[in-house]
Design a protein around this nucleic acid. Structure first.
Length: 590
RNA sequence: GGGGGAGUAGUUAAGCUGGUUAUAACGCCGGCCUGUCACGCCGGAGGCCGCGAGUUCGAGUCUCGUCUCUCCCGCCA
């Protein structure tokens, strides 16, 4: 028998045709007499009917069917009786009267039901152990289809925009900085290791030197760091690099591509161009470099007001170069109980806050544990700066700049969600641009790249590389969707001299630079064009598009939080023979 | 490395301040049922209460340890 139709294709126009359908038994409704089977495949659902009057032989065989049996049926498309039409089903006008049934494969009862009730969440461990069954669920199939569609849209778009898809190696060289590498031992070169790429960064830059002009790749990247709801050790990037471009051109291409993806997958129109926000403004107003702009709250700095305050907690912070920022919630004073504020205090402690001061603006007085330390002048200035009205509540963050921004930024996002201050179904994009080039690493007594060591500084800041390194901005841009960074990139350095200078600031010695990046430094001297690029987190993007709570839900075979696969039980021990071939001796205490 | 949550039939859960035979729903098995689509009705099977110690006359319940899953901090150029 050869399948003639998928299970979403038949309707009233097919009545009378003989068809052959194949799929899984989603559910049987055995009335003793007539038997109804919902037959399911990747496309949809069609009801097939075993009727003892129509065909006693197949009807008898139909009694054997159980959930998830794989079957083939040959039968006639019949109209359903008027009272039995199912409007919720695409194929609900018709049903198949079975002439012949073949059981292609029976199925044991499943460890969990495929025909899911969305309210029942099967333990993730079990889902992952039987991932092939979990993926059979309609909700998972929808996500995988969405993922495939997004990849297709991107490929189509990039090909039509002159990009070439070029593969780069997975077995490559370990590089310093960045994430921990996954290592692969070399049998042919005992004692030497490949590293799996954290990104194809250097290869794509070299392709620009080779003159390919526009490159892209949908590519796996590997980082051996601890996992999160949105982080997997192997994940997929849409990686791109372009020659002879400035940031604006790259952002325009991304704007265009994103708007197509959202139009074609969710039928949502993105307002173009996507808003551009300078890094400094993002940090000032939102405290985070990936702000969720759907939340209608902004932080306000008040350090100057309390610089010489009698309230030592504040004034000493300012004296030590720290910062005081406020977050105001209009009219929320009555809504927030003492318990609620205590919970918020616990929340900000996670991010290094020592406490969370607050003031409720009541009708006759300011209610607060700290306001008694404020002078009238300070109160007046505060009220004016923040725009306080009766019924408002404000929170204060006071600490070193990084800590304040971190926890007040998180607090803003946290409160925004908890108090439902915005429409969660909205999609809000923003570009955050011009990140600092480097930040000082006090532990290591050197500078670290904020993006990566190949990022170009802004032209007007290059002079400052000598003395005011932290005042140097970079030609960088991150794409942020609803408070999640979904991509980032930069214009790269194409001058050997400048690259040398950067390595020097990063405390990567000439010899080490030579050893680790010699091939890049050489390449820069053979006619490297100005170039830049971007990489998008494909899994995260699909996660946001499909409304998944976890990156694991948009990856067919993901790892658990301990970076294991419970289906295959990888990672696993290997034979001593294999280890010997690789010249590896284990030093693990059993 | 650290902090929180979870682990009880195949599944999802209930099981209070420790107490006699550990419940329910769905699923599974058997029977009945000719228009269902979460079919219905009747009956049945199914448990190392994650694992290991301890406290106790007695532990699913309390204590400690341990494993697994999960959320977060650190980490993730």
């Amino acid at each position: 028998m050869k399948r003639t139709h998928y299970l979403d294709e038949l309707n009233a126009s097919n009545i009378g045709e003989e068809v052959v359908l194949m799929g899984w038994v989603r559910r049987r409704r055995d009335h003793g007499g007539v038997i109804f089977i919902d037959l399911r495949d990747i496309k949809g659902l069609t009801q097939v009917v075993f009727n003892p009057e129509h065909n006693p032989e197949t009807h008898a065989k139909g009694h054997q069917l159980r959930n998830e049996y794989v079957i083939a049926v040959r039968g006639i498309v019949r109209p359903r009786p008027d009272e039995s039409l199912n409007k919720n089903l695409k194929t609900g006008e018709i049903e198949i009267f079975v002439e012949e049934l073949r059981i292609l494969n029976p199925s044991k009862p499943l460890p969990f039901m495929i025909d899911e009730d969305d309210n029942i969440e099967i333990s993730e461990n079990l889902r992952l152990k039987y991932r092939y069954l979990d993926l059979r669920k309609e909700s998972m199939q929808k996500k995988m289809i969405m993922r495939s569609n997004v990849a297709r849209i991107m490929r189509d778009y990039l090909h039509s925009s002159g990009f070439l898809e070029i593969e780069t190696p997975f077995l490559t060289k370990s590089t310093p900085e960045g994430a921990r590498d996954y290592l692969v031992p070399s049998r042919v070169n005992p004692g030497s290791f490949y590293a799996l790429p954290q990104s194809p960064q250097l290869f794509k830059q070299l392709l620009m030197v080779s003159g390919y002009d526009r490159y892209f790749q949908i590519v796996k990247c590997f980082r051996d760091e601890d996992l999160r709801a949105d982080r997997q050790p192997e994940f997929t990037q849409i990686d791109m690099e372009l020659s002879f471009v400035e940031p604006e051109e790259i952002m325009e291409i991304m704007d265009d591509m994103m708007s197509r993806i959202f139009k074609e997958t969710l039928d949502i129109d993105i307002t173009l161009p996507i808003k551009r926000l300078h890094y400094d403004e993002a940090m000032a107003k939102y405290g985070l470099d990936a702000p969720d702009l759907r939340i209608p709250l902004e932080l306000v700095e008040v350090s100057d007001i309390f610089a010489s305050s009698g309230f030592k907690v504040f004034s000493s912070v300012v004296k030590n170069g720290g910062m005081i920022k406020t977050l105001k919630l209009e009219g929320a004073a009555a809504k927030l109980s003492r318990k609620y504020i205590d919970d918020l205090t616990d929340f900000v402690r996670i991010y290094g806050a020592k406490g969370l001061a607050w003031i409720k603006i009541n009708k006759d007085s300011w209610q607060s544990p700290i306001v008694k330390f404020f002078s009238d002048d300070e109160k007046a200035k505060l009220s004016e700066r923040v725009g306080l009205k009766e019924g408002d509540i404000i929170f204060f963050g006071a600490a070193d700049t990084n800590t304040v921004n971190e926890y007040m930024g998180r607090l803003r996002a946290h409160i925004g969600k908890k108090l439902e201050l915005f429409d969660e179904s909205e999609y809000n994009f923003v570009w955050v641009t011009d990140f600092p080039l480097m930040s000082y690493n006090a532990d290591e007594k050197r500078y670290d790249s904020v993006h990566h060591p190949f990022t170009a500084p802004c032209d007007e800041d290059i002079e400052k590389l000598g003395s005011e390194v932290e005042q140097v901005y970079s030609k960088s841009y991150d794409l942020v969707l609803n408070g999640s960074e979904i991509g980032g990139g930069s214009i790269r350095i194409h001058s050997k001299q400048l690259q040398d200078k950067i390595f020097e600031l990063l405390n990567i010695g000439e010899e080490e630079a030579r050893e680790k990046f010699g091939f890049l430094l050489d390449a820069l001297e053979y006619g490297a064009p100005p170039h830049g690029g971007i990489a998008l987190g494909f899994d995260r993007l699909v996660m946001l598009l499909s409304g998944a709570d976890s990156i694991r839900d948009v990856i067919a075979f993901p790892k658990t939080q301990k970076a294991a696969c419970v289906m295959t039980s990888a990672p696993d021990k290997v034979d001593t023979k294999q280890l010997r071939e690789l010249a590896i001796k284990l030093n693990v205490i059993e």
